[in-house]
């Protein structure tokens, strides 16, 4: 019993300090549900022993990464929130296109890559002339999900969720029973590990930063710190995007449209 309480407390501190994720008392089941398979794979006799080892300061990456992967993956799908992408297409991109030079976009906490790839599909369909000017940096705290994004291969279930058949034909190719994003779209995205709490932004002078449906999982203090940090990475004329239904408070300012905010 004592070990169980110790591991749960260690996990809660670890998730809060390292990932900004607040685990509530009633979410104890998540530890067992998500980490038992990991503990078994890594050959720990119990979940508690695994958690105590992984949350220990100086624990090796091979032990820590799977824990972060299992505890942080959140649902994502292609073209999540059509209204949001309509604003991106009709308002945001035309504004950015009006200025010369590169257009740099950061998809933060991108999970398995559906958001950055949705963006590449919109760009190819509506702004083919800008393809060479746009670069997308996709980041996540979990190495496991970044690997999925980098490969760009998705199951029937994953493409069904949001990818229409005309888009599937245009932007994907068959990959052994799955579907892989075509190379010309994959080439537009760079993947990098990034921890919203502890890492600096992956670039500065960004035109758009997307951090959708992530900060709602954060307690208020780190949430405001992350937002402030992101704003410093956006150009004065750039844009910040959060989930359309998110109420994150703080100094987000007045929305241009649900989810979309001016940088300053």
């Amino acid at each position: 019993m004592a070990e169980m309480a110790a591991s749960w407390n260690a996990l809660r501190s670890f998730m809060k300090d390292r990932c900004g994720v607040q685990l509530n008392e009633d979410q104890h089941y998540l530890m067992e549900a998500r980490l038992a398979p990991v503990a078994k794979t890594l050959k720990y006799p119990t979940v508690d022993e695994y958690v105590l080892e992984a949350c220990r300061p100086g624990a090796s990456r091979t032990v820590v990464s799977p824990l972060i992967d299992a505890m942080t993956t959140h649902e994502t799908y292609f073209f999540r929130d059509t209204g949001f992408w309509k604003v991106f297409t009709d308002t945001i991109m035309p504004k950015l296109a009006a200025n010369p030079g590169p257009i740099r976009i950061w998809s933060a906490a991108c999970s398995t890559g559906q958001e950055p790839y949705t963006m590449t599909m919109v760009l190819e369909e509506k702004f083919p002339q800008l393809m060479d000017r746009v670069s997308i940096i996709a980041t996540d705290v979990s190495e496991g999900v970044l690997e999925v994004g980098r490969r760009g291969t998705y199951s029937v279930f994953e493409v069904n969720r949001g990818v229409s058949a005309p888009r599937l034909m245009r932007h994907f190719e068959r990959d052994e029973g799955h579907f892989r994003v075509k190379e010309r779209l994959r080439r537009m995205v760079t993947w990098a590990p990034q921890n919203l709490i502890t890492s600096p932004p992956p670039a500065t002078d960004l035109d758009v930063v997307l951090v959708r449906n992530v900060l709602i999982y954060f307690p208020e203090q780190p949430r405001l710190q992350v937002l402030a940090k992101m704003r410093t990475a956006i150009r004065p004329q750039g844009f910040l995007a959060i989930g359309s239904t998110e109420m994150i408070g703080g100094q987000t300012g007045t929305a241009l449209a649900p989810g979309w905010y001016p940088a300053r």
Binding site: V156, F157, V159, N160, R161, S164, A165, P166, L168
Partner: peptide, 8 residues
């Protein structure tokens, strides 16, 4: 459009 089975 075309939705592949199985779908949610």
């Amino acid at each position: 459009d075309f939705v592949m089975k199985p779908f949610s």
